[in-house]
């Protein structure tokens, strides 16, 4: 199986974009200041804390990708350096929004903070995942380059769903200062999605088993991918995703523009560990 071979121009354009993205990453992370203290809004606080948990799950996600052939792709690993950095600070900004609007300090979802305490459940989850990664490392390296396309696709779909989630946050943001913060985050996220889209186009195998494998992986994507989310996180995310009836069709349109066949994005019933699934349209 082989990976896609992109034109030299497309590769050069991606390289230039990667370097511009790395250079443009904001390095000033002063605390968010409000002209007047925000009014308590526990629902908004819970929502931003749930999204913060997703943004903070970058390192476990990187681990899953780096044990595979994806770690050989120096373009992607260069992108991941800035991507992880920006997501780290996005989570920090969201935590600040959560703290400012929590009111009583809980909002149904406690704040994670940059360095949440390690509990037994997290240790057990980590151990289980490391066992799973042993097999994954061998299997994905046997499959080879199509796995890189699969990983980029998973990240891309995640960014597309998050784009809708941030749009929902924008719709319910309670004050101008918070609106500016969310708008800044959306600008950064839009660049992540665009780079991933360009990278995916260059890595999607043109035909054969590799392409079929990527299509199969697309059907297996569930959102959110495991980020150690509790029931309250999932409730908050489900509420954001279903808030705008057009959000699922917009994600579906983007997925169907990938050229991997027809799909639809389905909202799953409450109490499931994922909010969305991608289904093949026969």
């Amino acid at each position: 199986m082989t990976g896609a071979i992109g034109s030299d121009d497309a590769v050069r354009a991606l390289d230039a974009r990667l370097r511009a993205h790395a250079s443009a990453a904001d390095e000033v992370h002063d605390p968010i200041e409000y002209p007047t203290a925000p009014v308590a809004n526990p629902q908004f606080a819970a929502a931003v804390r749930a999204v913060a948990r997703l943004e903070r799950s970058t390192i476990p996600r990187l681990r899953r990708m780096l044990v595979s052939p994806t770690h050989l792709d120096a373009r992607l690993t260069a992108f991941f350096s800035t991507w992880a950095y920006e997501r780290y600070w996005i989570a920090d900004r969201l935590d600040q929004l959560g703290a400012a609007h929590a009111g009583d300090g809980t909002a149904g979802i406690p704040a994670d903070g940059a360095e949440p305490p390690v509990d037994r459940a997290a240790l057990r989850r980590d151990r289980r995942e490391r066992v799973w990664l042993l097999g994954t490392a061998i299997a994905t390296n046997l499959v080879g380059p199509p796995m890189v396309a699969v990983h980029v696709l998973q990240c891309l779909v995640d960014e597309w769903v998050l784009d809708e989630v941030y749009a929902a946050l924008t719709a319910e943001v309670p004050d101008d200062r918070s609106a500016e913060v969310v708008a800044d985050i959306r600008r950064v996220k839009a660049e992540h999605a665009e780079i991933l889209r360009l990278a995916f186009a260059l890595r999607l195998p043109e035909r054969g088993n590799g392409r079929r494998l990527v299509a199969l992986a697309l059907r297996r994507i569930g959102w959110p991918a495991d980020a150690g989310l509790g029931a309250a996180h999932l409730r908050a995310l489900r509420r954001l995703v279903r808030g705008d009836p057009g959000s699922l069709s917009r994600i579906t349109e983007r997925i169907n523009a990938l050229g991997l066949g027809g799909y639809r994005v389905a909202l799953l019933a409450p109490r499931r560990s994922t909010v969305l699934r991608i289904r093949r349209v026969k």
Partner: peptide
């Protein structure tokens, strides 16, 4: 990043 990958396979990954 390759060294980071190896590091992440140790139990240290749960440490914030």
């Amino acid at each position: 990043v390759c060294y980071m990958r190896d590091m992440l396979m140790t139990p240290s990954q749960v440490d914030g």
